[in-house]
Design a protein around this nucleic acid. Structure first.
Lengths: 172, 172
DNA sequence: TGGCGCACCGGCCACAGTGGACCGTCCACA
DNA sequence: TGTGGACGGTCCACTGTGGCCGGTGCGCCA
C-alpha cells in the first residue's frame, strides 16, 4: 500500500491526464478550472510537483524556453490519482471572514457593518452573474450535466449567500 | 500604526472580552461558537496566545491547577480587536473535497460516486437538523436576529447543498 | 476513603497552505 | 529596436492542521 497523495497533489495529477504541462500551466488551469472550490497557490504547485517527481508519479522533462520544464504523468501517477479519486472526501473547509465579524456584531459600528455587507453583496452578485454567463455559454456549446455539476454548486451557493444577505443580514 | 492582528488572533481577543480564560477554554469556545465558519486548532490557539502576549495584547496570569494559565485582554488588545473588527473582511475560503472529485467525475466509477453522494447527503442533512434544533432553542430562549445571523447562514448553506445534491448531482 | 479513569491543560512537531518578493526570459508591438 | 508585460520558476515567513506526548486533579464508585 503506497502512501496516498493529498488532494492538491491529486488535482495536479488529474490535470496532467490531459497531457504534459509546466507548473505554470498547471497553476493557471487549477485556478480557472478548480479555483472555485479548491484553492491552489503557485508555491504549492511547484512544491507538490517536486514531491511527486521524487515519488515517481510524474517525470520531469528538459528545460525549454524560459526555463520551462514540462512534467508528465507516469503510470504509477495515474494509479495514485485513481486511488485518490475513489477515496473518501474528507476535510471540507469553510472560512468566512464576514461571518466571523458578524459573530462580534455587538461591537461593530452600524455604518461599518452596512459598508461591509454592501461590498460583500456586490462581490457575490458579480460572481453569480459570471457563473450564469459561463452556464449559458456551456449550454450553447452542448455541455452535459456532468460538466456543469460543479458550476451548479457555485450558482446555488451564490444565490444562497445573496438571499442570506438580503433577508437575514439586512434586518440587523 | 501597529501591526494588525490576523483573523484567528482577533477571534481569540474577541472571546476574551467576556473575561479571562485559558487556552483550553478558548479552544472549546472557538470550536463551538465559531467553528462553523472559522476553524481553529489547538496548536494555533497556544501559538497565537504566545504571540499576543509578546505584543502586550493579552497578559498571562500565574499557573493554577493543572498548569492552567488564564490570559486576559489588555486595553491595547481591546483596541487591536476593534481595529480588526472594522477592517475589510478578505480571504473567504471554500474547499470542498467532493466537488474536487466531481470535477474528475469522468474517471470515477458510478457506484463509488453514488456512495460518496449518499454519505455527503447524510452528513449535510444531519447538520441541517442540528442547526434547526439550535434555532428553535435559541428562539424559545428569546434570542434576537443579531444572535441568529450566523446560524441562518448555516441553515441556508446546508439547504443549498442538499438541493444541489438532490437535484443536480443525482442526475449524473 | 482510597484509587482510578477521564476530562483538563499545555507543548511540540511535521507537514500543508498562503501570499508576496524576487529573478531571469522572450515575445509582441509600438 | 527596445521595452512592457506575460511566461516560468524559486524562496521565505507566516498561518493552519492534526497528531502525539505527558502531567494533573476532580469526581465517582467500590
Amino acid at each position: 500500500m503506497p502512501e496516498p497523495v493529498n488532494a492538491t497533489a491529486a488535482a495536479l495529477l488529474g490535470l496532467l491526464r490531459d497531457g504534459p504541462a509546466s507548473g505554470y500551466d498547471l497553476y493557471q488551469r487549477a485556478a480557472s478550472e478548480l479555483g472555485d472550490f479548491w484553492t491552489v497557490t503557485r508555491s504549492q504547485v511547484y512544491r507538490e510537483l517536486t514531491a511527486l517527481a521524487e515519488r515517481g508519479l510524474v517525470t520531469t522533462g528538459e528545460a525549454g524556453a524560459r526555463a520551462r520544464r514540462d512534467v508528465a504523468l507516469t503510470d504509477e501517477g495515474a494509479r495514485a490519482f485513481a486511488d485518490w479519486l475513489a477515496s473518501d472526501p474528507v476535510g471540507e473547509v469553510v472560512r468566512i471572514p464576514l461571518l466571523l465579524r458578524l459573530a462580534f456584531a455587538d461591537a461593530l459600528p452600524e455604518a461599518r457593518l452596512r459598508d461591509m455587507v454592501a461590498a460583500a453583496r456586490a462581490a457575490h452578485a458579480a460572481r453569480l452573474v459570471e457563473y450564469e454567463e459561463v452556464e449559458r455559454a456551456a449550454q450553447e456549446a452542448g455541455a452535459g450535466d456532468r460538466d456543469l455539476v460543479t458550476l451548479r454548486f457555485g450558482l446555488r451557493y451564490e444565490r444562497a449567500v445573496l438571499a442570506w444577505l438580503d433577508e437575514d443580514v439586512r434586518r440587523l
